[in-house]
């Protein structure tokens, strides 16, 4: 716990009160994250209340000016991060000729908690064979309906077989399935996907450690795990809950739970301890000043710029880049080769 990070209101009484409240929240969420770690992977990470909420909202997924407009606007930045990171790693692996245009082409990608399929459609257009899974049946229904109206997507109904095959049209195959990460792991087994994404999901699950472990197990050796979530900071509370839900009503109140937010350093720490097998090296082998090397993992803040109406990726090494991770951020980690 770092009291220096707490806000400093003028009045002592308020300070005491808010500090206490903050500590309580902090402890509660810390406890959730830690206790989940103690338990084993048999637990479900799916929260029924969360699923009910998103099912109610599912019809609005593709209303670009409605409930999910912020996610629509965030989508290009997520894709940009994924593309840049994959390209960087391909060049790191010695593929100098790797082109930015088709860096996703032919990869098997899993999107956990795909919602209305915002990210899946983009991934599929860029040539990835994409499987989108969601614990809400109505989300899957909306995603399927939307994809089937778009001829640029090579969409097919869910087949519980192995990963979808690439097609002649050069577009990646797109499949949706009403299931959870643990069921994908149970039915298809580990090490299935080149890339596993889970965007804005971590803050909605129970047992985040189980969830992360399931996602991690699904990644092929040398493959990539991309996450985006919200950090547990006063700033994040102010922006994502107080402003977005209560003040501006951009998002339905109750969408976010502060205690479930996860800090970047908690993810770094998790993968610093996480090993694919007991004898293998952890996914993040070393930290420099609390930061992993760029070939193992990376955190990038994303910030909404209201006057541009766009999200933007905080530039690497920018002044206050750490501060930029204080609210929404993207996280990438690579599974070591075995």
């Amino acid at each position: 716990m770092k009291p220096s990070r707490l806000p400093k209101p003028a009045s002592r009484a308020i300070r005491y009160h808010s500090a206490q409240r903050h500590q309580r929240l902090y402890h509660a969420s810390r406890a959730a994250f830690v206790s989940a770690a103690a338990s084993t992977g048999s637990q479900s990470s799916v929260n029924p209340d969360e699923i009910a909420l998103f099912s109610r909202l599912s019809s609005q997924w593709w209303d670009e000016r409605g409930e999910f407009q912020m996610l629509h606007k965030m989508n290009p930045v997520r894709i940009q991060f994924i593309r840049e990171k994959l390209l960087e790693m391909r060049r790191e692996d010695g593929e100098d000729a790797a082109s930015a245009d088709d860096v996703l082409k032919g990869l098997n990608v899993l999107d956990v908690g795909c919602g209305g399929g915002l990210l899946c459609e983009s991934l599929a257009r860029l040539g990835a064979n994409t499987l989108g899974v969601d614990a809400s049946a109505s989300n899957i229904g909306i995603a399927s309906t939307h994809a089937s109206s778009d001829p640029s997507l090579n969409y097919s109904l869910s087949v519980k077989s192995t990963s979808p095959a690439p097609t002649s049209r050069g577009k990646g195959a797109l499949t949706y399935e009403h299931t959870s990460a643990e069921d994908v792991l149970a039915t298809r087994g580990p090490r299935q996907f080149d890339v596993v994404c889970s965007m804005e999901v971590l803050e909605h699950v129970d047992n985040p450690r189980t969830f992360l472990r399931n996602c991690a197990d699904l990644v092929k050796p040398g493959g990539h795990l991309f996450l985006s979530t919200i950090s547990r900071t006063p700033l994040a509370y102010l922006l994502t809950i107080f402003a977005a839900e209560h003040l501006l009503r951009l998002v339905t109140p109750g969408t976010h739970t502060y205690a479930k937010y996860v800090r970047p350093e908690e993810l770094t720490q998790f993968f610093g301890d996480y090993r694919s097998a007991p004898e293998s090296r952890p996914w993040i082998s070393r930290l420099y000043g609390g930061v992993p090397t760029r070939t193992e993992a990376e955190t990038r803040g994303i910030i909404y710029v209201p006057w541009k109406g766009e999200w933007t990726l905080v530039p690497r090494g920018a002044v206050g880049a750490r501060w930029g991770e204080g609210c929404n951020y993207l996280f990438w980690v690579r599974r070591p080769l075995e």
Partner: peptide, 21 residues
Amino acid sequence: HTAVRNGGDVGSYTALAPYAR
């Protein structure tokens, strides 16, 4: 071009908003 690069739907409002801006 930007929308295509990001796998976006070029007919979507999100993709076209920067043009109007």
